[in-house]
Nucleic acid binder design. Structure first.
Lengths: 130, 130
DNA sequence: TTGCCAATACGAAGACCTTCGTATATCCTG
DNA sequence: CAGGATATACGAAGGTCTTCGTATTGGCAA
């Protein structure tokens, strides 16, 4: 059997992953600061979360130094894809396209973003033809 | 103050809402059957869920007859929009457009669906110009 | 060396979700 | 009218998630 893919991150876990994706490998302390400091989240809370995430293989950990360094085990793109698929499954009968349309029509997107979507669409239709 | 909007549905709640959206107002028994019968979900489980959802105002209930009739309190479109916004917030820095792109590039969409997305895009860009 | 600060590990509390058992009421059939 | 089937109500168990307190260890400065 191959190494299992980790489960989808929970809410608090996703918050931490966002920090790790943005900052790259980080200490617990750095993650905690990025989350808004002690006002928002206690240090041991972040630590515990990272430990749990390590158990789930959502993050990797470098323990060579006393102060451990954590980094996301899975790129943002992959995780985002899986989150979207999950939502499509749960709320859109499995159709990611319907989900995408709901997303586009729900929030006002900038002209730049709309252009980017169109470019992507062009590419997808070309590939579909091929 | 105006009537509060209900919270986002949980997983099991969403499953039930999907039945109510598809079938319209239904009895507990009908929902349970639609979910795959007793093999999949016990009757009292569905009942309890609907009672909880009623408490959260996710569903409305007609109690005039002994056998209550439940219906979704919020249309599928609205709830889907809120679910998408929530995910955009949690995993895409608030950008629904980036979420849409991830959705489109993650799952193969049919040509029909791609056309529909393009049409929607046309409309959005027109409205943006206006 | 002693004592302090910072880090990790661990456990447990409290919240929410899902599931189901049981109690009770109501209806219908014979 | 009695008995069974079917309905609702309620409580509680078991799971997961998030939070934090406390214990312990390692390093460093005076």
């Amino acid at each position: 059997m191959t190494a299992r893919r980790p489960p989808l991150p929970t809410d608090a876990e996703l918050q931490i992953l966002r920090v790790l994706w943005a900052r790259g490998a980080s200490t617990v302390r750095a993650v905690q600061s990025a989350l808004g400091g002690a006002e928002r989240t206690g240090y041991t809370t972040v630590l515990k979360l990272l430990q749990v995430m390590h158990g789930k293989r959502l993050v990797r950990r470098d323990e060579r130094e006393r102060t451990h360094i954590y980094e996301a085990a899975i790129p943002a793109e992959d995780t985002q894809r899986r989150l979207v698929s999950d939502l499509a499954e749960r709320a859109f009968g499995g159709s990611a396209a319907r989900l995408a349309m709901r997303a586009l029509s729900s929030a006002p997107a900038s002209a730049d973003e709309l252009r980017a979507v169109r470019t992507l669409l062009d590419r997808l239709e070309r590939e579909g033809d091929a």
